[in-house]
Design a protein around this nucleic acid. Structure first.
Length: 259
DNA sequence: ATGGTAGACCTTCTA
């Protein structure tokens, strides 16, 4: 089973590009982030035509996450538990039905910039809530994948120019520590388990010719429970998609599970 | 030190 994660930077502005990639890569499950629309504005027909079932947790203008699956989605949870006042659509969880069900979450972790503002506090509070919820999910002892745009550069090797990011929320020690703490609950980071090559980025800024200079960062991650890690056979970053017409600034990351 | 790009949407915010 192929499970992808992709921050599409507006599913409506990107529809042609996104459909092109779906037809090429044929994911069984795809988790999208930054759809940037309410549920009613999601171009559902385009994906239903390709044979997908949809779960959408949208929001006007900003954020928004979705899960598309070839098999029906069950036990859908919208929003990250832990703060009922949080109105940002950044978390969606569902169980992918099948002979061996897999629980999947589509995550759009807060950016957190600038770091001297409440935006960074919100990022760290959100990460604490994610870690608490992830701990509960691990206790279920089932195949589980938490995939998405984590907005965290885990290590210096995950940036072409680590020195550019020292004042950025994506590379702060607090951000990295929270991501490490999440992994240490018992997750396997799919990319590091399978490949782990340096200079393997998932995001290149639109500005300053970042793509042309390969000035990228690796911030889109797939974390697997032990029961899912046992099934892991591959993890590929679809870098070439960044060179297409009208690209997102992120590229898809695809994991393969043996089921 | 600045500005460079992209998307939603109404003027500026987010990234």
């Amino acid at each position: 089973m192929r499970v992808a994660t992709w921050n599409v930077n507006s599913v409506n502005a990107r529809l042609e590009t996104v459909v092109r990639w779906f037809e090429e890569a044929q994911p069984d499950v795809a988790c999208l982030q930054e759809i940037k629309c309410v549920d009613e504005k999601f171009p559902a027909e385009a994906f239903e035509r390709l044979g997908y079932n949809l779960a959408i947790h949208g929001q006007k203008t900003y954020n928004g996450v979705a899960i598309l699956s070839k098999t029906p989605l069950e036990d859908v949870r919208k929003g990250l538990p832990g703060d009922p006042t949080d109105e940002q659509a950044r978390y969606l969880e569902a169980v992918i039905s099948g002979p061996r069900p897999v629980r999947i979450a589509s995550i759009y972790l807060p950016n957190g910039n600038p770091i001297s503002t409440e935006k960074f506090d919100y990022k760290l509070a959100w990460m604490a809530r994610l870690n608490a919820h992830a701990k509960d999910l691990l206790a279920l002892e089932e195949p589980l994948a938490l995939v998405g745009d984590y907005n965290v550069i885990p290590e210096a090797r995950d940036a072409a120019h680590p020195e550019h990011w020292t004042k950025d929320a994506l590379a702060q020690p607090e951000s990295r520590a929270a991501f490490q703490a999440l992994k240490w609950l018992g997750f396997t980071e799919a990319f590091m388990a399978v490949d782990g090559a340096p200079e393997s980025y998932t995001f290149w800024d639109y500005q300053a010719g970042a793509w042309q200079r390969n000035n990228g960062i690796r911030i889109d991650h797939a974390l697997l429970s032990p029961q899912a890690a046992d099934l892991l056979t591959g993890c590929v970053i679809h870098k070439h998609v960044r060179g297409w017409e009208k690209p997102s600034d992120h590229v898809p990351v695809m994991i393969e599970l043996n089921l």
